[in-house]
Simulated assay, not measured.
Amino acid sequence: MKRSDLRVEWEQRIATFTASGLSASKWCAANEVSIHQFWYWKKKLKTTEDTFSDSSQWFALEMDDSMEDSQSKIMVHVGQVSLEIEHGFDPKLLVEVVRTLQSIC
């Protein structure tokens, strides 16, 4: 089984568990699933969701020569916060700010 197929299978299992209203141990026993694997996948899928939530969208930004003047700006929206980014910004700082905003929004 491919890793992507296994991931889809566990996403379905976690969704079924959530809808069941059972405790993890009871659901695992009823569905013949290892409790250790269950917690591994539940944590793994939650971490992935946190990192790549449906509301996050990443895209490539290509700049041409006309965009390199000192007056060029872009707007970045994170939740309800808007950031105005000017030419010469610090990319590492922007990443830190966006991550912080995502964690509180």
Score class of each variant (00 low, 15 high):
Ser70Trp: 03
Val33Gly: 02
Arg3Ser: 15
Tyr40Arg: 12
Ala19Val: 09
Lys46Glu: 13
Ser72Trp: 13
Asp64Leu: 05
Glu11Asp: 03
Ala29Trp: 00
Phe89Thr: 05
Glu62Gln: 13
Leu101Gly: 00
Thr100Phe: 10
Met1Ser: 14
Glu11Gly: 02
Lys42Trp: 08
Ser66Cys: 04
Gln80Leu: 07
Gln80Glu: 13
Lys42His: 14
Ser34Trp: 11
Ala24Arg: 09
Glu84Met: 10
Arg7Met: 11
Lys44Val: 04
Ala24Ile: 11
Trp58Gln: 11
Gly21Arg: 08
Lys44Ser: 13
Arg99Leu: 13
Gly88His: 08
Tyr40Ser: 12
Ser82Thr: 15
Ala29Asp: 13
Glu9Asn: 06
Ser55Leu: 10
Arg3Ile: 13
Ala15Leu: 10
Cys28Glu: 02
Gln37Phe: 09
Ser23Gln: 10
Val98Ser: 06
Gln12His: 04
Val8Met: 09
Thr51Ile: 07
Pro91Ser: 15
Gly79Lys: 01
Leu61Ile: 12
Asp69Val: 06
Val97Asn: 02
Ser20Trp: 11
Ser53Arg: 09
Lys2Leu: 13
Ser103Trp: 01
Pro91Asn: 15
Val95Gln: 08
Asp69Gly: 11
Leu61Tyr: 11
Glu32Cys: 01
His36Phe: 06
Ser82Gly: 15
Ser66Trp: 01
Ile14Ala: 06
Trp10Gly: 04
Ser72Glu: 02
Arg7Gln: 14
Glu96Gln: 10
Cys28Ser: 05
Ala60Cys: 07
Glu11Leu: 10
Lys2Ile: 04
Phe17Glu: 00
Thr18Pro: 04
Leu93Cys: 06
Lys43Ile: 12
Ile104Glu: 12
Gln12Val: 06
Ile85Phe: 02
Gln12Asn: 05
Val33Ser: 02
His36Glu: 12
Leu83Pro: 09
Arg99Tyr: 06
Trp27Ser: 02
Phe38Trp: 03
Ala24Lys: 11
Val78Gly: 01
Lys43Gly: 09
Ser23Gly: 15
Lys43Cys: 08
Ser55Gly: 10
Gln102Leu: 08
Trp10Phe: 14
Asp69Glu: 07
Phe59Lys: 09
Met1Gln: 07
Val95Asn: 05
Asp69Gln: 08
Glu32Leu: 04
Leu101His: 00
Ala24Glu: 14
Asp90Met: 06
Leu93Ile: 03
Leu101Pro: 02
Lys92His: 09
Leu61Asn: 04
Ala29Cys: 03
Glu32Ala: 09
Phe38Ala: 03
Leu6Pro: 00
Ser25Trp: 01
Ser70Val: 06
His87Phe: 07
Trp27Cys: 08
Thr18Ile: 12
Val95Glu: 10
Met67Arg: 07
Thr48Arg: 10
Phe17Trp: 12
Asp90Thr: 09
Arg99Val: 03
Leu94Ser: 06
Val78Arg: 00
Phe52Gln: 07
Leu45Ile: 15
Thr100Asn: 12
Met67Tyr: 08
His36Asp: 11
Met63Cys: 12
Asp64Met: 04
Glu96Arg: 08
Ser23Cys: 07
Asp65Val: 02
Leu6Lys: 12
Leu94Lys: 04
Phe89Asn: 03
Leu45Asn: 08
Ile14Pro: 00
Met63Gly: 07
Thr16His: 14
Asp50Cys: 01
Gly88Tyr: 02
Phe52Pro: 01
Lys2Tyr: 06
Glu49Pro: 01
Met67Ile: 00
Asp64Ser: 09
